[in-house]
Nucleic acid binder design. Structure first.
Lengths: 120, 120
DNA sequence: ATTATTGTACTAAGGACTTAATACAGTAAT
DNA sequence: ATTACTGTATTAAGTCCTTAGTACAATAAT
């Protein structure tokens, strides 16, 4: 799966979001080991330093933790992952509505547009 | 109305989006004159150079044009504005669905979540 | 035991964005 | 005619992000 990184937003932030998505959608299982910093960097096509920074940020969320010399592992805390997914979903929806309201649409109009798009 | 600029995305891009929104929602009328670069910069709380860059970008879209010494003016082309609005709306919806799909949701699930949020 | 791999740390360089401080020519207002 | 305002251009400095290259200690693999 391509990483699809663009340049408008810092790459390390996009990487954090990408891996968060993979965790909350179950592509990584509980306690599973992540590929090494260098391997992930190669896969994503970025410098290892950039990947290291992203993973370091990701660690602050508690979703992953590092074992100094054996690798990085996904949390065993299933509730934390569920909460993260809820949080990400809410952020998307709120952001979407906020942006649509800036374009002058009411909730009803937004819902109608979404229906049309979903049934396309 | 506050400009609500953040730091994850270049400020000049956020300004372009902000003014685009104001144009397509009719806060600026056809042919209306924009405030000066310096006034807009003060209002947005950014450096005049940054505002100048944003306005220069905006000019490339054709939505505004500058009269060398009297100011900047909104286009008289109503169709262009309508097309821009449609384009912005489509981008929002597509981006929203793309992000929700990355979180593992189907179109039906997305629609359901949006309904819940719209009726809150 | 030796080798490879792990996360981590550090310095240096380049690029993009932003701010700051000026400056200029042309137009509007007086 | 003079003054104020317009968009525009330029140079310099500072910050953040990214890449590159190197290095180290601790563990895993052999």
């Amino acid at each position: 799966m391509p990483w699809n990184l663009n340049s408008d937003i810092p790459v390390f932030i996009q990487i954090v979001e990408h891996i968060k998505n993979e965790i909350v959608t179950g592509k990584y299982k509980l306690g599973e080991r992540l590929p090494s910093v260098r391997d992930l960097a190669f896969e994503a096509g970025v410098n290892p330093n950039t990947m290291q920074r992203a993973l370091s940020e990701l660690e602050n969320t508690g979703l992953v933790h590092s074992e100094r010399t054996s690798g990085r592992f996904i949390t065993e805390d299933e509730d934390m992952i569920k909460e993260m997914k809820t949080s990400l979903v809410n952020r998307q929806i709120e952001e979407f509505f906020k942006n649509m309201e800036k374009l002058g649409f009411t909730n009803e109009e937004i819902l109608k547009l979404v229906k049309q798009y979903a049934d396309k």
